[in-house]
């Protein structure tokens, strides 16, 4: 009996929706007391902006069948079973721009009606989808698939920042795993595994970088980008990349295609209680902006 049953494919029940074409990491937080949302029919879905950067304002159109019930502190992969239809993409650009928004599904139909308010946004990140390899909104090569990026998104063509002049071996394995060793009393801090560099981020295995201010050495294979640090946005030499494969994808890193550096993969973070959305696209930047539209600093 067991041998008979073992032969064959596992059967699916009625909840089977297909094989996902995308799994988007998403987390839900709350600007206020999370208990304010207890019992409310909160759903999170993908909303696309077909107008793109050329539109006077962003108009968000929900992609059906992407919504999912959510509550504060939820972390899950938002599964996408259908690629967005062509009318949700940005004209003839070949890509689409989206955000995850939360709404109150009062009628329980799994779709936002006009009278159902938006009660949460993901303001710090966005989603770019390319059905085929194309050129991204910043003029950079964009592989096919879903890409979670930080927002606002540079939507005007801009060149990748150049690599450092006179690149050298500064003894810092940019992008490699590391760990931060907390100093004892009277001892200086030490970042293990990065040589003279620093270990950014305790999670995801750490990331070796070199502060631009650390000295005159311009590390080969690096590119300057501004990241949030304890002292605020700080320019660092990060590992340069051209594709996700250049980064530690298995540990949650991906290639930021318009900054040209490996960064921790963004999550779609929906904050319940925040409802004011900035424009998805930002003007062209001369520096390296990251998270919140910060400008960057060129190396001396």
């Amino acid at each position: 009996m067991a041998s008979l049953v073992a032969c064959g494919d596992p059967l699916v029940d009625e909840t089977y929706r297909g094989e996902p074409v995308g799994a988007l990491p998403l987390e839900v937080s709350s600007a206020g007391d999370p208990s304010n949302y207890d019992g409310l029919p909160v759903r999170v879905a993908l909303f696309w902006s077909p107008g793109g950067p050329d539109s006077a304002q962003d108009t968000w159109v929900e992609q059906p069948q992407t919504s999912r019930a959510a509550q504060p502190l939820d972390r899950f992969d938002l599964l996408v079973f259908e690629v967005p239809p062509a009318d949700l993409l940005v004209g003839a650009t070949g890509y689409g721009l989206a955000r995850a928004l939360a709404y109150r599904d009062d009628d329980g139909d799994g779709l936002r009606s006009a009278d159902e308010p938006i009660i949460g946004i993901n303001g710090r990140s966005a989603l770019i989808y390319a059905p085929e390899p194309t050129v991204g909104p910043a003029g950079n090569p964009l592989p096919a698939g879903f890409h979670v990026v930080s927002a606002p998104v540079p939507c005007a063509p801009q060149p990748l920042p150049p690599g450092p002049p006179d690149p050298q071996d500064c003894g810092v394995p940019l992008g490699q795993a590391c760990r931060m060793q907390m100093p004892g009393p009277g001892e200086p801090a030490a970042d293990v595994g990065c040589g003279p560099g620093v270990c950014l981020g305790a999670g995801q295995g750490g990331y070796c970088a070199l502060a631009v201010s650390a000295g005159p050495c311009n590390p080969a294979g690096g590119r300057i980008a501004v990241v949030e640090g304890q002292m605020g946005p700080t320019p660092y030499f990060l590992k340069a990349c051209a594709a996700d494969g250049d980064c530690r994808v298995g540990e949650g890193y991906r290639c930021d295609h318009w900054r040209g550096v490996c960064l921790a993969a963004e999550r779609l973070t929906v904050v319940l209680g925040e409802t004011e959305l900035d424009r998805l696209c930002m003007p062209a930047m001369t520096g390296m902006g990251i998270g919140g539209g910060q400008g960057g600093m060129l190396p001396p």
Partner: peptide, 18 residues
């Protein structure tokens, strides 16, 4: 009915169970 079934999460298969 004894059968091989797929474990589903959010509509997508994540495993198998008898």
């Amino acid at each position: 009915m004894v059968m091989q079934q797929a474990e589903l999460q959010a509509g997508a298969p994540v495993g198998e169970v008898l």
